[in-house]
């Protein structure tokens, strides 16, 4: 136990303000996110992530949002296990035909008002996989989409910015 405490103390809080880069700093995006989440979702935005056929690359970066650097929960955003608890669906693609029905059902199970973000090149436009006997391509080919976050895969910061943009479109 002492070693655990020593480790925790030694590492300290690593959650970022990033060193200034050419990108908008994480903290800045986060602050805006917190404000918008506060305004529109009473301080708590619940996201259900749906892998509808992804290569898992986008999932790795969505996972990273929960690591101690990005710590997205501090901005009021958390991932939930059920679409029935969700305000937003974060859907990665391409939508495989074998996931088509499950995605529609997940969408139907999410209460209104809801937001859908298509994540990654494949979610946005089918990416390398396109439309085929096995793939429906873009998420928008299967369910209504409010916003897209491009990138292969989008970085955690791209994801945060994309989520901010999407909720910015929604009026209080």
């Amino acid at each position: 136990m002492l070693r655990i405490l020593a480790k925790i103390q030694k590492i300290g809080i690593i959650t970022e303000p990033l060193p200034a880069t050419d990108q908008v700093a994480l903290e800045q995006v986060g602050q805006q996110l917190r404000d918008r989440v506060g305004e529109l979702f009473s301080g708590s935005l619940a996201i259900r992530e749906v892998d509808a056929g992804s290569c898992n690359g986008c999932e790795l970066e969505i996972h990273a949002l929960n690591n101690p650097y990005y710590g997205i929960e501090r901005f009021g955003i958390h991932f939930v296990a059920s679409p029935r608890h969700a305000d937003m669906l974060l859907v990665t693609g391409p939508v495989s035909r074998h996931m088509e029905a499950a995605l529609r059902r997940t969408y139907d199970a999410t209460p209104e008002p809801k937001l859908v973000i298509a994540v990654g090149e494949c979610g946005a436009n089918g990416g390398e996989f396109g439309v085929s006997y096995a793939s429906c391509g873009a998420v928008a080919n299967v369910i209504p989409v409010d916003a897209v976050i491009r990138g292969c895969p989008p970085t955690p910061l791209d994801l945060m910015r994309g989520i901010l943009e999407a909720i910015g479109k929604r009026s209080p």
Partner: peptide
């Protein structure tokens, strides 16, 4: 089989650069 995306089929007819991009995914 839920994320079957037809990778083997859509690989057919690609050039070497295109196959490398598909394999990366």
């Amino acid at each position: 089989g839920y994320v079957h995306k037809g990778i083997e089929k859509i690989a057919e007819g690609r050039d070497a650069a295109g196959l490398a991009r598909l394999a990366a995914r």
